[in-house]
Design a binder for these strands. Structure first.
Length: 337
DNA sequence: AATGCGGGGGC
DNA sequence: GCCCCAGCATT
């Protein structure tokens, strides 16, 4: 494992705040995708106190587009706990790090080893793959038994004299040589010791037992505009995009056909809106998520008055709307307008 | 133990 | 299309 290193802005970092931030950003996220988010966060919030003091929406706006938004909520919660209840001092003991919101076994081991050089092995997707292949282990990595087995094995093979270096190296090795698809076995320095290579099972490992099934949903967003203000609402349900903003949403089981007649009929019957102008109906947008496929349209409606049913909603000017975090499905539409 | 959570990139 | 990515929280 010599020249498989990848350069990253957080490498060699010893500040636990910066390590924690980078690791949370990188949960289930490719390095290239998280890189610029990390840079922006550090520019905006150089210390945990500044992050803790920032308004929720400002931080969500920084996270906008990165996905898995509960990470952002937990990030803020943990920052405020440390800044305001623990005198800004990041915990040092593994168990205390693990107890932080949004920090699981991987992130706790990463912080403990990188910041404090403590002997805790990281077990991420790379490590699962490298170990499964090197030792030719067919235990499913998404089973409880598999997680225990691989975690124990990772801690056995960990170089306890230089845990930070070892953890970095095994992840870089998995990302650059022992890749998921088309691994570089021909030039792999560990080939002669690799059990899966000798057994011809490299491409069958690691094993996963769970299969993905994808939900299909239709989101019809009504852009209600009144005197230059827009109706926005915050998603609060335990569902995708929790905490982000959106426009008035009509979710349906099946596709709908929206035209002048159907829009005004729906507005009248469902919303009690009689005086309105249909400005536009967008083409169908599609967003592919890991577990869902969202399809939908944006229906821009100019109101001449605000109906009772929408009086309690938030009506904001474009400048205010620009400060809110929206799902990619919506920002993509707004940017294309 | 099972489920849900974004978005992007490689093939 | 399908799989994977420096995973975690909730039920």
């Amino acid at each position: 494992m010599h020249d498989n290193k990848r350069e990253m802005p957080w490498k060699g970092e010893k500040d636990p705040y910066r390590i924690w931030l980078s690791e949370v950003i990188l949960q289930q996220t490719r390095v290239e995708q998280g890189w610029h988010y990390y840079t922006r966060f550090i520019e905006n919030y150089p210390t945990i106190r500044e992050l803790a003091a920032a308004p929720d929406q400002e931080v969500f706006k920084c996270w906008e587009g990165l996905g898995y938004y509960n990470r952002c909520r937990n990030l803020l919660s943990t920052a405020r706990t440390i800044a305001f209840q623990q005198n800004g001092e990041f915990p040092v003991q593994y168990e205390d790090i693990l107890a932080l919101k949004g920090v699981g076994p991987y992130t706790a081991a990463a912080i403990a080893s990188f910041a404090y050089n403590q002997p805790y092995a990281v077990v991420d997707g790379n490590v699962f793959r490298v170990l499964a292949r090197f030792f030719n282990i067919g235990t499913a990595i998404d089973s409880t038994a598999g997680k225990q087995e691989f975690s124990a094995l990772a801690n056995e093979v960990l170089d306890r004299k230089q845990p930070a270096f070892f953890n970095q190296a095994i992840m870089d090795f998995g990302a650059t040589v022992c890749k998921p698809v088309a691994p570089l076995c021909a030039s792999c320095p560990l080939r002669s010791e690799c059990a899966a290579y000798h057994n011809g099972t490299v491409n069958q490992l690691p094993v996963k037992e769970k299969t993905l099934n994808r939900k299909h949903r239709w989101f019809y967003y009504f852009l209600f505009e009144y005197e230059g203000k827009w109706l926005v609402q915050q998603r609060s349900a335990k569902d995708i995009w929790q905490g982000l903003f959106e426009f008035y949403l009509l979710e349906t089981e099946a596709a709908m056909k929206w035209d002048q007649a159907s829009v005004s009929q729906w507005l009248g019957e469902q919303m009690g809106i009689r005086k309105a102008t249909l400005v536009s109906v967008s083409p169908v947008s599609v967003q592919q998520l890991t577990h869902q496929q969202i399809k939908g349209q944006f229906i821009h409606v100019q109101l001449l008055s605000i109906p009772a049913s929408l009086k309690t909603q938030q009506w904001l000017r474009p400048a205010e709307v620009a400060g809110l975090a929206f799902p990619k499905f919506i920002t993509q539409f707004l940017n294309g307008r």
